[in-house]
């Protein structure tokens, strides 16, 4: 692995009230790679993901210690505005969550929030983002249709288009295909493969097949700890930790 590091965490801990949900996590996420986070339910992988764009700030009981750096900057430093951070580190959620607005307005939401008013520029961004999310051909005839009228897979790609419309550098994906059928899932996975050209992608997934198909690097989480991280190929064929091996061979989880 010779790519430069985009995100790194050092001794990252998170408590929900009394619950110690993340324990001393040290992780280096390489630039323009797909990094998969795997592990059984409740192991902290989604919680970890939400630390990377400070989404956990919204949860009252969450308390975070340790360091998270994006491009060498500590994102939990006092002078960092989480709103600006989230422009740079976008997120795709498990349940697709398009706004109850038109397809166009969904994608234009971010750019509008960031002050772009010019109609031509918005149209250009919307088209580019929809193309980037491999949705353009399916929706170009009627961008005024409600985003909620799309199929589940299309909705999730709309959310990806919405995320890339603000030109982020990192995309965090929280089980983006868990609610989709196999064909829609395949489309999303293909898309992830294309997106890594331009973005650093961190994907939480329940499916080990998915992790092995889309990711370059895999990190295994268990009970709030990051047990092992390495090239996906190696993690799935010759993990160095017993717990990783037990998990990927299906002995628990």
């Amino acid at each position: 692995m010779n790519a430069s590091t985009k995100i790194l965490t050092r001794d990252l801990n998170l408590h929900y009230g009394d619950k110690h949900a993340l324990r001393h996590v040290d992780l280096d996420i390489p630039k323009n790679h797909v990094t998969a986070l795997i592990g059984p339910s409740g192991c902290g992988k989604s919680t970890f993901l939400r630390c990377l764009n400070r989404m956990n700030d919204l949860i009252e009981s969450a308390r975070i210690t340790g360091r998270v750096e994006v491009d060498g900057t500590d994102i939990y430093a006092k002078d960092v505005d989480p709103v600006l951070l989230r422009r740079k580190v976008g997120m795709i959620f498990q349940k697709s969550n398009p706004f109850p607005k038109s397809i166009f307005e969904n994608v234009a939401y971010g750019p509008r929030v960031h002050g772009i008013k010019d109609k031509n520029r918005l149209e250009e961004i919307v088209e580019r983002s929809l193309r980037g999310a491999a949705l353009w051909d399916e929706v170009k005839d009627d961008l005024s249709k409600s985003g909620l009228a799309l199929s589940g897979g299309q909705q999730q790609r709309l959310c990806i288009a919405r995320a890339i419309a603000v030109d982020p550098e990192v995309l965090l994906m929280d089980e983006p295909a868990s609610a989709l059928d196999p064909i829609a899932t395949a489309k999303i996975e293909e898309l992830i493969w294309q997106l890594k050209e331009s973005y650093t992608i961190v994907i939480v997934t329940h499916s080990m097949h998915q992790a092995s198909r889309v990711s370059d690097t895999t990190a295994f989480f268990y009970m709030g700890e990051m047990v092992e991280m390495g090239p996906t190929q190696k993690i799935f064929t010759s993990p160095s930790q017993k717990r990783t091996e037990d998990y990927i061979t299906g002995r628990f989880g």
């Binding site: 959620f93 969550n97 971010g110």
Partner: peptide, 26 residues
């Protein structure tokens, strides 16, 4: 739904923008 608020915040909208453009219209 909380998901809509999070969707907006994750795009770099402020809390006020989220309330104004997502929560209130809903």
């Amino acid at each position: 739904p909380r998901e809509l608020r999070e969707g907006s915040l994750a795009l770099g909208a402020t809390r006020l923008e989220t309330i104004w453009k997502v929560v209130l219209p809903q």
